[in-house]
Design a protein around this nucleic acid. Structure first.
Lengths: 349, 349
DNA sequence: CTGAAAGCGCTTACAG
DNA sequence: CTGAAAGCGCTTACAG
């Protein structure tokens, strides 16, 4: 069943059928109606390969998600697909490991899946620096900045992670915390966790709060399980902490569970602050205090920018910081002043 | 830059270049080496549209996910992609609304995205009954059974939802609960929520526990927010409940938060049981009692079955129930016997 | 082992 | 408004 069959059955030529299919001008209403009827009767669907071959178009936008366990990306994906769907753009999702080289993967996929643009959810600037030159189609990085990469086909939208992390620390300090531990990320330069850690550490220093990264920080991947384990690890070194700042909500949820398991009620015995503002953070018990990223804003602005550059590839790249909000939660309260902490205070210093 | 340019530059004909690209026999090592060198120099990538047009092959497996807020599907997707990735199969994810007609969407996508097979994550048998005949490629339904559809290109793997829900109720009753509310699903026939509700109601009846669906059940979609709202709703009618069975973990998480907000501690004042066994259920406070589906088993067996039928489309369809496990959690304990409940008991009956 | 040629199913000037 | 014809970039018998 191809376009010739439809032409034969409808009594029109192949050219007219093609014009009818594509809603081109210069087809009589009569012809269009007849052709559509035949197509429906036959259940005919044009062969997309042939269509694209002729139009030499590439079809879909690749969406590379770096880290399947980070709920934040799931929410971003949802908004991205919504924005893309509104303009009838097809997208294609690929999940990568949190530690994968997303740029190398993109190079691999670019041709085999014929993307016309690529949207990176999460990314490591080091990978972009190393391999992005092989990619020539318009690209967009969300949740990290690509400004320093300096490629003219790469835009980026992200939260100001360092600033937001600093604000979270300000809040912890304002509540009276002076023994603060941090979990999450991997300390590789320019990675999102590292940016947050750096922002937090700068703020701690500004407030004169002692923080030694080897002792007070525990790296981990973005998942509840890893947050749980990292918390257990950190507590072994610093049982006297009065607050834990998890550099991602999924880790914060794991942390709260771990604290419960070691009999440290949150927030009475120890406070927890997260980062991201995922849906689940609104439903934890206690409700999580967190830095909420503007997921919808990042997705919508990002997609809009990408679409503009798909239209006009010569357009200058943009790099924008999208606003965030500090979201009060029940998981943060002033530190306890009981004998337990007084006891540990002496031990730890 | 097309295959002719490579032919010209390498000094071979288009046919030989094509054979070299596709690793066909009848190309000398010398020619292959020279051609590969030129391709690399030119950064040439064959046009996939043209390749597929000629081979008239379909490439990827479509994965239609019905309900973006259900974490269970996110976990299934992960396992599905892992299984598919091992055999180098490409998959393409499409997220649909929980109430979308997944079969109508599949019909739409089948041609435009040239799938060679379709994997449905979640599905309503009514939709399959109405429109599946238009789909001729091998298909697989996960998390619901398609046995009664009786199509020879449709297999299915699922948990025995009715049986599992009944077991959860058995457990609630065994703990002494007699005033049990249920939330989740939409009561449309054969839907997963309805199967679970039915299994639960049958068990309640078997135990002689009174249950009136109009009063003791509140429908809702599979999300934390909806679970929260449904719980609030149900509590207004039945403040005397000692247990809530949420027909999905995401709703159970919402329910626990709602109960906390109205000052009903879980499980001391009221117990909560979920269904699915998503990752987050292991990290809630209190830890959720739930029916854990064998996500990995469902994904792996399902994918294996689909791949077999992609190889040999004549193969008989399979419909299998994959085992589940009841997972004890802290959210279930015996009902309280305090004045509060005695009070309400009189009011409610 | 290699080349010349037909054809995959469409779209799009071009001529009428 | 419609039709006949060229061509998109490949692959694959077929002939050598």
């Amino acid at each position: 069943m191809d376009i010739r069959d439809i032409a034969r059955l409808s009594g029109y030529s192949v050219g007219t059928v093609s014009r009818a299919i594509n809603d081109k001008p210069n087809v009589s209403e009569k012809a269009k109606a007849r052709i559509q009827q035949v197509m429906r009767e036959q259940g005919y669907q044009p062969n997309p390969n042939a269509q694209h071959l002729k139009q030499s178009t590439r079809t879909s936008i690749g969406v590379l998600v770096k880290g399947a366990h980070n709920q934040l990306f799931a929410e971003l994906v949802e908004h991205v697909q919504a924005s893309l769907g509104q303009v009838e753009e097809e997208s294609q999702l690929v999940y990568l490991d949190e530690d994968a080289d997303e740029v190398a993967e993109a190079v691999r996929y670019q041709s085999s899946l014929h993307f016309k643009g690529i949207l990176f959810l999460g990314g490591d600037p080091a990978n972009f620096r190393a391999g992005f030159e092989a990619i020539t189609i318009p690209c967009l990085l969300l949740t990290n900045t690509a400004e320093s990469i300096g490629r003219d086909n790469l835009s980026s939208f992200t939260t100001d992670d360092a600033k937001a992390a600093a604000e979270a620390v300000d809040e912890l300090v304002r509540f009276g915390h002076r023994r603060i531990g941090i979990i999450g990320g991997n300390r590789r330069p320019e990675q999102i966790g590292t940016l947050r850690l750096q922002g937090a550490m700068d703020a701690l220093e500004r407030h004169g709060v002692p923080f030694e990264v080897e002792r007070d920080y525990e790296p981990c991947r973005f998942s509840m399980r890893d947050g749980y384990d990292a918390t257990m690890c950190l507590l072994r070194r610093r049982p006297d902490l009065t607050a834990i700042f998890a550099l991602g909500d999924v880790m914060a949820i794991g942390a709260m569970r771990a604290l419960r398991d070691v009999g440290r009620p949150v927030p009475e015995s120890i406070s927890v602050v997260g980062f991201d503002g995922i849906e689940a953070s609104k439903f934890t018990v206690p409700r999580l205090m967190t830095v909420r990223q503007d997921v919808e804003g990042i997705a919508e602005k990002g997609v809009a920018a990408l679409l503009e550059r798909l239209e006009d590839p010569a357009k200058e790249p943009v790099h924008e910081r999208v606003g965030h909000t500090l979201h009060r939660g029940e998981s943060l309260c002033p530190p306890p002043h009981d004998i337990y902490h007084t006891l540990y205070e002496g031990m730890a210093s």
